[in-house]
Structure formats: C-alpha cells, structure tokens
C-alpha cells in the first residue's frame, strides 16, 4: 500500500464522516442559520427590494396578533392529546396482546401499515370517510339516528377529527415499541413476585410498568417530536382551515412563507417553533435519564 493510502487509512473515521459533515453543514446548518437571520429582516421575495433589518419586529408582530399564540396552543393540544391517547391505548393493547397466538405476525404487519403508508394517501381516504354528504362515518351516524356532522368543515371539530387520524395512525407505533420492550425485560422478577403471592394488578403496576419505563419514555420522545411537527396529514386534509381552525405552528410557518410570501415572519415562527420542539425534547430526555437512575 502506498503512503497516502496508509495515511488515509489511519484516519478512516474522518474520511468516512467528512462527506456527511459537509452535507449536514451545507444542507442543514446553513438553512437553519439563514432562517434565523431572516427572522430579523423584512423581505417579500423580490429581487429589486433588498432585505431590510427590522430587529425584533417580526417577533413582536407575532405576539401582537392572536393568530400565532392560538397556533401555539393548537400545536400543544394536537400533540399532547394525541400522544396521551396513543400511549394509554398503545400500552393497554400491547399488554393484552403480549402472548403467543395464532396470526400474531399478521397482526403485527397490519399494525405497521398506518405508519408506513403514504400520509397524503391516508389523508385522502380519511377525507372521504369524513365527507359530510357521502362519507361512511356520517352514513353510520345517520343510520343510528344521529345528526349530520361536518367533521373537517366545522371550526369546532376539525382539529379533533385530525387528532383522531393521528391516533389511528400512531397508536400501533407505541404498541409495537412496547411489545418489543416486553420481550426484552427479564423474567426473574415475575417469578419471585409469583412466589410472594402478588396478584396480577400488583405485578403490572409494581414490576411490568416500572421495567418498561425507559421504553415508554423513548416512545413518548419519538412520538412527541413527530406529533409537534405533524404536517402532511393536516396540510393534505385541511391546509390549516377552515379559516385558521387547524393551523398549528408548522402549518402557520408554511402559509406565511409560501402563501403570503412573508419570509421574515415565517422565519420568526420557525425559530420559535424550533425552540418549542427543542425544549420539549430536552425536558423529555432529562425526565428519562432521571427515571433510569431509580433502577
């Protein structure tokens, strides 16, 4: 082997990472810094008008109108309500299905489908199911003598209809993670508990759930980050409407940029959105490491 080859081989971990580092710097870090700088400027996508430095004006404007704070609230409502239901349902179903039974693999495959299927296609089917005049949901409700509901057109219900889709789509994810976690916890504590005469409920709350805690936290962390950032389902089904009824921070920043061409405003929304997701992720990780010390 020649000398250059040898020199490179000894520093292979740099050779292996440099292309990826360059990619990350160029495609990821540059846009983040650009967005940050943009958030202090006013600019409307025009080659003739240069950027104008406006200081914190974009941020002040966000808080002076109700549209932004409400979008923040909606983002939290969407993410936490969906997450809460998904975790409770996911854990319960996983605990119940945690045994060998006929067709278990098929069931697992079925659970995969909602989360790997193309979100836009999922959005379209649910739009058809929710359709007030021809949708099956209203047909069923009508059959039971209920009222006609405009699931996506009513400003009071639309967000909850979207949360329901998220729950349908992601409960299986929590469930699969918990099922995988259940197979990896040791059996000895269960045996000693049985010898000590613990009943089922005690075994569940004192042994199974505490042992599963790290797994549950990871599921919560991954799901929470993605739920806060939900875009495809919301945008393909309602575009943030009717009015602003389903406008989360993500959708708001998108509309500000690409519908109203207010790139500075959008930048400010994105910076704040990023901070929100970051801090929630950090809190979750902190809580997670705290629970791990207990064991």
């Amino acid at each position: 082997m020649n000398r250059i080859g040898k020199w490179l081989d000894q520093r292979l971990h740099y050779v292996f990472t440099i292309p990826t580092i360059l990619f990350v710097l160029g495609m990821v870090l540059f846009p983040i810094i650009y967005t940050f700088v943009l958030s202090f400027h006013s600019w409307r996508l025009s080659a003739n008008i240069p950027w104008e430095f406006v200081g914190l004006q974009n941020y002040v404007k966000l808080f002076s109108e109700s549209r932004f704070p409400v979008a923040v609230f909606r983002t939290f409502l969407f993410a936490f309500l969906a997450l809460f239901v998904e975790v409770i349902l996911g854990i319960s179903i996983a605990l119940y299905l945690n045994r060998t039974f006929f067709g278990k693999n098929l069931v697992k495959t079925a659970f995969l489908l909602p989360m790997v299927a193309t979100p836009v296609a999922i959005g379209m089917v649910w739009k058809l199911i929710y359709e007030p005049n021809i949708g099956i949901l209203n047909a069923v409700i009508r059959g039971m003598g209920g009222p006609k509901m405009d699931w996506l057109g009513n400003t009071g219900i639309a967000l909850y209809s979207l949360i329901a889709v998220d729950i349908w789509q992601w409960t299986p994810f929590v469930m699969l993670i918990i099922l995988a976690g259940l197979t990896s916890i040791p059996t000895d504590p269960f045996e000693s508990a049985m010898i000590d005469g613990a009943n089922r409920w005690q075994t569940l709350t004192r042994i199974t759930l505490p042992l599963l805690r790290p797994t549950i936290f990871t599921a919560v962390l991954l799901r929470l980050i993605d739920a806060l950032k939900t875009f495809d389902i919301i945008y393909s089904m309602t575009q943030g409407g009717p009015g602003f009824a389903t406008e989360t921070m993500n959708i708001l920043s998108f509309r500000q940029a690409f519908e109203f061409m207010q790139f500075g405003q959008s930048g400010a929304t994105l910076v704040l959105f990023f901070l929100v997701v970051m801090s929630i992720a950090a809190i979750t990780i902190k809580l997670k490491s705290k629970t791990e010390v207990d064991f």
């Binding site: 983040i32 940029a257 994105l270």
Partner: peptide, 22 residues
C-alpha cells in the same frame, strides 16, 4: 456527531425549505 443527526430529526423541515427555495 450523533447529536447533530438527532437535531435534524428535531428541526422542522420547513426551516430547511425556505432558504433553499429562495
């Protein structure tokens, strides 16, 4: 490095979009 990779998961995709679109 692995921290940076996790960051990409956290950053909203739209903040990548705006600068590159422009």
């Amino acid at each position: 490095f692995s921290g940076i990779i996790l960051m990409i998961r956290i950053v909203p995709a739209i903040s990548f979009l705006v600068p590159w679109y422009l």
